[in-house]
């Protein structure tokens, strides 16, 4: 299964805006997603926004990226305008969506 468009977008932005190379950028984002309990294959733009807000800044700071706070604020702003295009089209249903319904009963 391919990585989610939101994941690829985030990695590209990190590569463009920081000194991280492609491998480092992808690894950093994967680690941030993992610590948020998310997966590169299924992350949505809305989930990514929270990860940028609450996890990514610390990951970037730990890697010596200067001014990680304003960088992340810029990512969130960019994501807000591009989020709809990045939303997964016809992706597989996630287990949490299934289990959310299963509690609905009759």
């Amino acid at each position: 299964m391919a990585d989610a468009p939101a994941f690829d977008w985030m990695c590209s932005r990190l590569e463009q805006d920081t000194s991280l190379d492609r491998l480092e950028a992808r690894g950093t984002v994967r680690l941030a997603l993992k610590s948020a309990g998310l997966d590169a294959r299924s992350v949505t733009p809305d989930q990514l926004k929270v990860v940028i807000d609450k996890v990514l800044e610390a990951e970037l700071t730990a890697r010596g990226i200067a001014d990680a706070g304003s960088l992340c604020a810029g990512f969130v702003t960019a994501l807000a305008s591009e989020g709809q295009q990045l939303a997964m089209a016809g992706g597989s249903e996630t287990p949490d969506a299934v289990f959310s319904r299963l509690g609905g009963g009759s």
Partner: peptide, 13 residues
């Protein structure tokens, strides 16, 4: 185990 982490960030019910 993944959902627990998401709950902490407000990403899951």
């Amino acid at each position: 185990t993944k959902m627990r982490l998401r709950v902490r960030l407000g990403l899951a019910d």
